[in-house]
């Protein structure tokens, strides 16, 4: 079956794009609603009593009663959910059970550290992955390709805590070149960030590089690239104007996965290197069973995922006007 192209004028971007955009944003909004329901259901609608779960087995009835009052647990679940959502929307999703600090302040105070680690990691990941992916993809099956693919494959697979520990053992403990942790939580110079950024990048570079490689390999095989080469177009123009743009839309999608991966990695890496970011805060909240904080962090992470994937879909849709990149 040949696909017949529409008659000129029947398909115009300006008419269809906004509709798809609205649709995609609506999906994202639905996901946010679903996520907040799940987070609340997991953290607030517990089997048994939340207060008992938080305080543990040894708590006295008085302690439990006090916490129940503080959390407003006597009220119906739906009302508590409405309160919580209202609080989230007005920027006040409750207070920490342990420190009493407002959840919003706790989160805000930790964002800068995480943003700088993740941002630095991205600055390393993107150019390295681009160089490696294009080099490997232009000569599929060559020795260079095999080495790059093998390293990317292995690196992508290793959990951050394990690679982090090995790197710390080598560069901090044995060689003493770099600090093993950020110490007591104070931010002490750029050296502290080297190992965390390397660990994060190690895991994600491979993922992105392999997608770029596949994109390049597939676009190189596309009939239009073969044809333009046949007609005599120069290799440089071909690579920059045709092969790379062809590999880009799936790469943008993969970049969203990379950011998702960084979010997971940051939790582990911050815990490992004692960085004062949201990841470490999340782990602390989990260990302290500080439920309002756990809710806040969970919502923050899930929202970031939703937004990042929304952006990726919109961008790759823009880059590939001929096909629906939107799911």
């Amino acid at each position: 079956m040949t696909t017949t192209a529409p008659a000129p004028g029947t398909v115009d971007r300006p008419r269809t794009l906004p509709r798809r955009l609205v649709g995609r944003v609506a999906v994202a909004a639905g996901q946010l609603v679903a996520v907040s329901v799940i987070v609340f259901a997991l953290t607030a609608a517990l089997p048994g009593d939340t207060a008992e779960v938080v305080l543990g087995q040894q708590a006295t009835p008085e302690q439990v009663a006090a916490l129940r009052a503080q959390l407003g647990l006597d009220r119906p679940v739906l009302l508590r959910f409405a309160d919580w959502v209202g609080g989230v929307l007005t920027g006040d999703p409750g207070r920490s059970l342990v420190t009493g600090v407002p959840v919003a302040d706790e989160l805000a105070g930790r964002l800068a550290s995480t943003a700088s680690v993740a941002g630095l990691a991205l600055l390393v990941i993107v150019p390295v992955a681009l160089a490696a992916g294009v080099t490997a993809g232009r000569r599929p099956g060559s020795v260079t390709d095999r080495v790059i693919t093998a390293v990317a494959t292995a690196g992508q697979a290793i959990p951050e805590f394990a690679s982090g520990l090995v790197l710390v053992a080598v560069f901090a403990v044995t060689l003493g070149w770099l600090p093993a942790t950020a110490g007591g939580g104070s931010f002490t110079g750029p050296a502290v960030l080297v190992l965390p950024v390397v660990v994060l990048a190690l895991n994600q570079v491979g993922r992105l590089a392999r997608q770029i490689r596949i994109g390049v390999v597939e676009t190189e095989r596309a009939e239009y690239v073969v044809h333009l080469r046949r007609l005599g177009m120069g290799e440089r123009t071909l690579l920059l104007r045709h092969v790379l743009p062809g590999a880009l839309p799936p790469t943008v999608q993969q970049l969203a996965r990379v950011v998702d991966g960084l979010l997971g990695g940051v939790v582990v890496v911050e815990a490992l290197f004692a960085l004062p970011g949201v990841g470490a805060g999340f782990v602390e909240a989990v260990q302290g069973r500080d439920l309002p904080l756990v809710q806040g962090y969970a919502l923050l992470f899930a929202t970031t995922t939703v937004v990042v994937n929304l952006l990726a879909d919109l961008v790759s849709d823009r880059l590939a006007p001929h096909r629906e990149a939107l799911r």
């Binding site: 953290t43 979010l263 939790v267 069973r289 969970a298 899930a302 995922t305 994937n309």
Partner: peptide, 17 residues
């Protein structure tokens, strides 16, 4: 919906509760 929950987050929230 499960796609927008980072895997580690699910296990951490389960543990926290």
């Amino acid at each position: 919906v499960a796609l927008v929950l980072p895997p580690l987050l699910v296990l951490l929230v389960l543990a926290a509760t």
